[in-house]
Amino acid sequence: MNNILLLGIGNVLYADEGVGVHFTNYIKDKYQFSHTEHLLDIIDGGTLAQGLIPLISRYDKLIIVDTVNCTTANPGEVYFFDFDQAPAEIDWQGSAHEVEMLQTLTMMDMVGDRPQTQVLGVVPTVIEPMTLGLTPSLHAAIPLMERTLINYLEQLGFNTKAQTQITIDEVIPDAYKRGGNHATSDSV
């Protein structure tokens, strides 16, 4: 049995920086996942980074949803990659929480307890304080992010079933109530 963690990272008070949190809450609300052998937890990790180490280390596989910085990409471009084989154009010197997450994964590597890690990232448009929501470029990227994640989970053998027709716009207004800067979990 594999324990798999879908972890949304981001600061919902900084516009596009909150996409990881918004996206994982959206997936949690929209889908039901089942598997005969694997367990999937969906967690809003907010901006905790290093505080998540004890939680992350309990899993066999980790899927991080976050913004990524890429000097050659346009806002809204989606990347899905194995953390150990990150594309050369990914620049980890983006936002403060992005750098902290990289440091967290590197520290976990040093002690040998980082799970196999995939990154579902999107290039942000605006990092603007006190703006709850996504810019049009990131909003347009959500369907591709959703298809990419669902395809990956189905390749792992998960049965996926949309249980509601919710949109990400319906999830965003409650983001600060759901987790934001502390981890919340739903096992599926």
Rank of each mutant, 00 (worst) to 15 (best):
E17T: 06
P115A: 04
D186V: 14
V122T: 05
G18Q: 11
Q103E: 15
G10A: 11
V78R: 08
D29V: 01
Q116V: 06
K28L: 12
T71Y: 06
P87T: 03
H182F: 12
V188T: 05
D60P: 04
H38L: 06
R114W: 08
L105A: 10
P54A: 15
I4N: 01
V126N: 15
T125V: 06
T104V: 07
A162D: 01
P143R: 10
D16Y: 07
P54E: 12
K177I: 06
G76Y: 12
V68Q: 10
L138N: 15
Q118P: 00
N25L: 12
G76W: 13
F23W: 01
E37T: 14
E37M: 10
I90F: 08
L52R: 02
Q32E: 13
G94P: 14
A175P: 05
N3D: 15
I63R: 01
Y26F: 15
P54Y: 09
L13K: 09
L40H: 05
R114L: 10
S187Y: 07
D41G: 04
R58N: 07
V12D: 08
H35M: 10
L62W: 04
T72H: 08
G18E: 05
N69L: 09
A49G: 09
P115S: 04
S95A: 15
L6H: 03
I168N: 01
L48M: 08
Y31H: 01
Q165P: 00
T117H: 00
G8T: 04
G10F: 10
D109A: 08
V122Q: 02
I172K: 09
Q165G: 13
M1K: 09
F158R: 06
A140V: 02
F33T: 04
Q116D: 03
S137G: 06
P173V: 00
Y31F: 14
P75L: 14
E154C: 06
R114D: 09
N181M: 09
M1N: 07
I43T: 15
F23R: 00
Y31E: 00
L48S: 10
D41I: 03
G157I: 11
G8C: 08
